[in-house]
């Protein structure tokens, strides 16, 4: 492979990392609170509010059932408003984040629902406020599950980012399409796919490790 191609590859990798990193961070920053709200406002939970719960649930479902490619095109006006353009890496971050936030929120919600109701009851018996229950019980107990959910989100974002790249977002997807397909350089296409595979593996492995380290549920007893 020529040095130019390698340079292009590194540049594309950087763009993809930025797109995935920034939208992944936004997915965590907004998805975690959204997941928390979806859980605690549900029936019988610490701050039951069915109106908020059903409305947010419906929005999340709508966003999640919209195919990414359509979402990307549909929100072009919004993207222009935020970043000034609808083309390039920065512009791709808007639809990527918008797709990732509800996705992450549902996974966070699932992780939070796994927390034993007995723990919430115990905290309530100690006089904990809803906020204390969220901060001291729900989130700490759900961290391993939340980390696993965010890992899945990042992996999905790597795939979506390639799609975003194909329509002018830059990054590995863009490189693969332009050189591998349009200029017919299959080795570039293969290199792109390999880099993507390595990226996904790295993210998944790191996420699994982190989640396992955080999980104190399966520690073995020292003796007897």
């Amino acid at each position: 492979m020529s040095p130019q191609i390698i340079a292009l590859l590194l540049e594309a990798l950087k763009e993809t990392a930025v797109m995935v990193g920034v939208s992944g961070a936004l997915a965590a920053v907004f998805g975690i609170p959204l997941g928390v709200i979806l859980v605690v406002t549900d029936r019988g939970h610490v701050v039951q509010n069915l109106v908020v719960n059903r409305v947010l649930g419906a929005i999340v479902n709508a966003a999640r059932s919209t195919p990414f490619i359509i979402l990307m095109v549909a929100i072009i006006p919004l993207t222009r408003m935020i970043v000034g353009t609808s083309i390039g890496t920065a512009a791709a971050i808007v639809p990527l984040s918008l797709a990732a936030i509800p996705f992450a929120a549902r996974l966070v919600e699932t992780a939070l629902r796994e927390v034993d109701a007995g723990l919430i009851e115990a905290a309530q018996s100690m006089g904990a406020s809803p906020l204390q229950i969220i901060r001291k019980v729900l989130l700490p107990e759900a961290w391993p599950g939340i980390v696993a959910g965010l890992t899945i989100t990042l992996v999905s974002l790597i795939g979506y980012s390639a799609m975003a790249g194909a329509v002018g977002g830059g990054g590995l997807g863009d490189l693969g399409i332009r050189y591998g397909y349009q200029r017919f350089q299959p080795e570039v296409m293969i290199a792109v796919v390999v880099v993507l595979i390595v990226m996904v593996q790295a993210v998944q492995t790191a996420g699994d490790m982190l989640a396992r380290r955080m999980n104190k549920r399966n520690l073995s007893r020292e003796r007897g």
Partner: peptide, 15 residues
């Protein structure tokens, strides 16, 4: 705060 409660399944925080 002045009422302690003990549960059948302990309800300890695993983390």
């Amino acid at each position: 705060h002045q009422i302690g409660m003990v549960f059948q399944h302990f309800n300890l925080l695993s983390a």
